[in-house]
Simulated scan of single mutants.
Amino acid sequence: MTILNTRIRARAGLAPKTVSSQQALIDALLIERRKELAFEGHSRMDLLRNRLALRSGNPAAAFGGAKTILPIPQREIDNNPGLQRQQNSGY
């Protein structure tokens, strides 16, 4: 993988890319995924899966905030006895 990545970047005239930690690698991959899959609807789930805020500077859009967790549909609550009297907070 490293050799292939280095050859591709060299062919494109780019310097080799290095990362200093596992989190730096994850951040770099998320940025590349965001660029590659723009407008395909994957970024929201990528951010939530990695416990990142949907929008910076908005506390309601932070991971686990009121704007990130959707309500359980009433139909599902009606059909499943285990969900009776349960709903995500904020709804």
Rank of each mutant, 00 (worst) to 15 (best):
M1D: 12
M1A: 14
M1C: 10
M1K: 07
T2P: 01
T2C: 04
T2A: 09
T2L: 06
I3F: 05
L4A: 15
L4Y: 11
T6Y: 02
I8W: 08
I8S: 06
I8E: 10
I8A: 11
R9K: 13
R9L: 06
A10N: 12
A10S: 15
A10Q: 14
A10L: 15
R11D: 14
A12R: 14
A12S: 13
L14H: 15
L14C: 15
A15N: 14
A15D: 15
P16K: 03
P16E: 06
T18Y: 14
T18M: 12
T18E: 14
S20V: 13
S21P: 01
S21D: 12
Q22K: 15
Q22C: 11
Q22E: 14
Q23K: 12
Q23W: 05
L25H: 10
L25G: 11
L25F: 13
I26Q: 14
D27G: 04
A28V: 01
A28N: 05
A28P: 03
L29I: 05
I31D: 15
I31V: 13
I31W: 06
E32Q: 12
R33Q: 07
R34G: 12
R34D: 10
K35F: 06
E36K: 08
E36H: 05
L37C: 10
A38M: 08
A38L: 08
A38T: 05
A38I: 05
F39M: 07
E40T: 13
E40N: 07
G41F: 03
H42P: 02
S43P: 02
M45K: 08
M45C: 05
D46N: 01
L47F: 01
L47W: 00
L48D: 00
L48E: 00
L48N: 01
R49S: 09
R49A: 09
R49Q: 03
R49V: 04
N50M: 07
R51H: 08
R51V: 07
L52F: 02
A53C: 07
A53R: 05
L54W: 03
L54D: 01
R55T: 13
R55H: 09
R55L: 14
R55N: 12
S56I: 12
G57S: 05
N58C: 12
P59I: 08
A61I: 06
A62T: 07
F63Q: 03
G64C: 06
G64H: 03
G65H: 00
G65R: 01
G65T: 02
G65E: 00
K67E: 15
I69K: 03
I69H: 03
I69Y: 02
P71W: 02
P71G: 00
P71T: 00
P71Y: 01
I72Y: 06
I72Q: 01
P73G: 00
Q74I: 11
E76V: 05
E76L: 09
I77D: 01
D78V: 01
D78L: 06
D78C: 00
D78K: 02
N80L: 11
N80A: 10
N80E: 10
P81W: 02
P81F: 07
P81T: 04
P81K: 04
G82I: 04
G82V: 02
G82F: 04
L83G: 02
L83N: 06
L83V: 09
Q84P: 01
R85M: 08
Q86N: 07
Q86L: 13
Q87M: 07
N88D: 00
N88H: 15
N88L: 13
N88Q: 10
S89P: 03
Y91W: 15
Y91Q: 12
Y91F: 14
